[in-house]
């Protein structure tokens, strides 16, 4: 997410809107790995993750003409499609029921410590910012974003009112934003 790369990404979106297949290939080279890692992290299996990534890139390919910069940079836009679809697939699995908190958290920590060696500074910063949060706020963010839990499910799972879930999410994200801005400045 280096700022210098953004204009190049924007140019890519223009080429994509003009149905340039090489632009799609470049977009994939740039973000395919991250998109796949995110989908895999949410779905926990490779076949579903591949389908989601394919869907997301095709959706970006077809929707590029309607892309507007104000909705976020191309990377964020693409990843939000991947996230949205992954959560969608997860929720649609009929067997899906909110897993006990410990199970969901166990999976989370196993996954995320696995390849920490190859992280860059920016990635470490995000991890540190999240880890610096009070437990309840960190869990709320992780379980919603990576676990696909809705706020209603989270309230039930954590035994707190809906307003508390909302508040933890808000304060947690605000703190992370300040932490990230601090390191970027």
């Amino acid at each position: 997410m280096t700022p210098e790369m953004l204009p190049a990404d924007d140019a890519l979106m223009v080429a994509l809107a003009a149905k340039d297949l090489t632009a799609l290939a470049t977009l994939y080279d740039r973000y395919g790995r991250l998109a796949y890692a995110l989908a895999y992290r949410i779905l926990g299996e490779s076949e579903g993750a591949e389908d989601v990534v394919q869907d997301a890139f095709i959706s970006a390919w077809r929707g590029a003409a309607g892309y507007r910069r104000e909705r976020g940079n191309p990377r964020g836009w693409l990843l939000s499609i991947v996230h949205h679809r992954s959560v969608d697939v997860l929720r649609r699995k009929t067997a899906f029921r909110p897993a006990p908190l410990e199970v969901a958290e166990q999976r989370a920590s196993d996954e995320d410590t696995a390849a920490s060696a190859e992280r860059n500074v920016e990635q470490q910063t995000v991890r540190l910012a999240l880890q610096a949060l009070p437990e309840a706020q960190r869990r709320t963010i992780e379980l919603a974003y990576f676990g696909g839990y809705t706020h209603v499910e989270l309230a039930e799972l954590m035994g707190v009112p809906l307003g508390t879930v909302k508040g933890r999410m808000r304060i947690g994200l605000q703190k992370m934003r300040r932490a990230l801005e601090g390191t970027r400045a």
């Binding site: 395919g32 991947v82 995320d112 995000v126 990230l180």
Partner: peptide
């Protein structure tokens, strides 16, 4: 979204 877009960065990298 600037924060939320950074969340994927903490995922373990995985080769498709």
């Amino acid at each position: 979204a600037t924060v939320v877009d950074a969340l994927p960065d903490m995922v373990a990298m995985r080769e498709p």
